[in-house]
């Protein structure tokens, strides 16, 4: 699988040479787009990240975790995973740090770790994506898609915990 990315680069560069594209000019122009794009994201990123930090620091995140653990437990999700499932929609780096902690505490081949890995791999940072995608667009009402995404992610998590038990 390590070959996928080199192959893509060779393909694109090779084809560009073949089509006589001015490679340096266009590549730099593309990076120029990246500069503009990153700056357009900054306000949303800053606001969402401040919210996440505040949520964590106020102790609400911990209280929420405690409250939801038994609910998730009833669905067959181990309590160690509650925090991971709750952080993931907000913060990719935060949940990655927590995943590392889970692996360190439970060992690389335990049921908990395998479960956590599958959950981590099959979910996304929903709130961050919504901020990035819809910054500067006319779309305002995102509640319905967000609920749909969170519900199906939770469903997939329940399935993940089941699958890890048998596979």
């Amino acid at each position: 699988m390590a070959y996928v990315i080199p192959v893509i680069f060779i393909l694109v560069f090779g084809f560009s040479v073949f089509r006589k594209v001015k490679i340096y000019d266009e590549f730099t122009a593309g990076i120029g787009e990246a500069v503009k794009f990153t700056f357009s994201l900054l306000p949303c990123l800053a606001a969402v990240f401040m919210l996440c930090e505040l949520f964590e620091a106020s102790g609400l995140a911990a209280a929420f975790t405690k409250f939801l653990s038994p609910v998730f437990g009833a669905l067959g999700i181990p309590s160690e995973l509650t925090k991971l499932i709750l952080i993931k929609p907000f913060s990719g780096s935060g949940s990655l740090a927590y995943l590392n902690q889970v692996i360190a505490e439970n060992g690389a081949d335990s049921y908990i770790t395998r479960c956590a890995c599958v959950c981590f791999g099959s979910s996304e940072t929903v709130f961050y994506i919504s901020a990035v995608y819809f910054a500067g667009t006319k779309v305002k009402k995102l509640a319905v898609p967000i609920i749909i995404i969170l519900a199906s992610t939770l469903f997939a998590t329940v399935i993940a915990c089941l699958l890890c038990r048998i596979m």
């Binding site: 694109v12 560009s16 594209v21 490679i23 266009e26 787009e33 990246a34 500069v35």
Partner: peptide
Amino acid sequence: TLFCIYAVWLGLSRLAEKSGL
């Protein structure tokens, strides 16, 4: 971090676009 990712991929995607890929 995002800028680094986008710089690489948007640079490449611009080439893909201009070459017709």
